[in-house]
């Protein structure tokens, strides 16, 4: 709402635009913020998220770096220790493994191991997921791994509102926050109020209300789950879609409330099944609301192969709207 009580005008934009607006907004609002990473400046980021920002903000704030994930994440940690609020862009989650030591052994531990003397208010954004025909080393979904690590906050914006608002909240968070932008979402279009602001990063969200079954998922699988739910609505099955939003910490309360309402739950995770985030969510449901369940917790996850290159193989390797719908039908006994 504007000061005069009228609603702000709504803008039509893509998820990519929303992330860019979030970065622009952070740079404008807080002089401690700068963006750093490979090809984020002149090239505008390999997913074109930061296009135009170099011209607008200059090289001190939009910094192209040498190609060393460990170094620009480590330098980001150093800058955060010195009072800045860096946004580090890692081109894709697969590349972030080159910075794993900095992220897991350092950013996540420093506040604790220094007895609370040093905070690491660092935001690391990275692309994740398949769907761009980029083969295994650019297509994996490893956010579930990061969600294993104490000291990190792991966010998976699946909507324009979250793409626009999570960065704000993450930058103000004193802990290191990793934001995973699923590559299938970048072109997603929608509307946002021109004055869209920060969003809460502690709660899961219900993206579609339903009463017969719940799908618990996140990131790029959210639109697929909503599409599957629409399909099933046409078949008389009313599916609720829970978007985790924060993968660490997990918002148990929202998950359990949904399960307690629908009594059937399918956990969908584009990441690999064994030892993945879907296993954690499933275990928590069994631990906390077992007696609410009318059927075993079901899981649909990525098949455990390195993601292949051509589209038909890529599509076959991760959950899709039709496979989610099929799994739901099986769970509710409508085959």
């Amino acid at each position: 709402m504007n000061g005069d009580g009228t609603a702000a005008p709504r803008l039509r934009l893509t998820y990519r635009d929303a992330v860019r607006e979030a970065i622009r907004d952070a740079l404008t609002r807080d002089e401690r913020v700068f963006l750093m990473g490979e090809d984020v400046g002149r090239y505008g980021g390999c997913y074109a998220v930061s296009k135009g920002l170099l011209a607008e903000f200059g090289e001190d704030r939009i910094r192209d770096t040498p190609l060393s994930e460990s170094a620009f994440v480590g330098a980001g940690i150093g800058a955060a220790l010195n009072g800045m609020r860096p946004i580090v862009e890692v081109m894709t989650v697969n590349f972030s493994l080159l910075a794993l030591d900095q992220i897991v052994n350092n950013a996540a531990t420093i506040p604790h191991m220094s007895g609370g003397q040093f905070a690491v208010p660092l935001v690391i954004r990275m692309a994740t997921g398949s769907g761009r025909q980029l083969a295994a080393q650019h297509s994996h979904s490893l956010e579930g791994w990061y969600a294993h690590i104490p000291g990190l906050k792991i966010l998976a914006p699946a909507t324009l509102e979250d793409a626009r608002g999570m960065l704000w909240t993450a930058i103000e968070d004193p802990n290191p926050v990793l934001i995973f932008e699923n590559v299938q979402l970048y072109d997603m279009e929608g509307e946002l109020p021109a004055d869209a602001g920060p969003v809460d990063i502690t709660r899961a969200a219900i993206r579609r209300e339903g009463k017969h079954a719940s799908v618990v998922t996140f990131g790029g699988s959210v639109p697929k789950a909503v599409a599957a739910a629409e399909t099933l609505a046409g078949e008389g099955v009313d599916v609720e879609v829970v978007d985790l939003r924060s993968l660490r910490p997990l918002d148990d309360a929202t998950i359990m409330a949904s399960v307690a309402k629908t009594h059937r739950v399918l956990v969908v995770d584009e990441g690999w099944r064994s030892g993945g985030l879907s296993a954690e969510v499933s275990a928590r449901i069994n631990e906390q609301v077992f007696y609410e369940l009318d059927a075993p917790v079901a899981r649909l996850a990525g098949v455990e192969v390195p993601i292949p290159y051509p589209k038909h193989l890529e599509d076959a390797s991760v959950p899709q709207a039709d496979t989610i719908a099929a799994a739901l039908r099986e769970m509710v006994g409508r085959r």
């Binding site: 460990s70 150093g78 220094s114």
Partner: peptide, 23 residues
């Protein structure tokens, strides 16, 4: 700062800390 048992991580952090000072 602190000491890292994972050797050398502090070296890039030092550079980043000093970059912030310059920025």
């Amino acid at each position: 700062f602190s000491i890292s048992g994972n050797l050398a991580t502090q070296y890039v952090q030092a550079v980043g800390w000093s970059m912030a000072s310059a920025i």
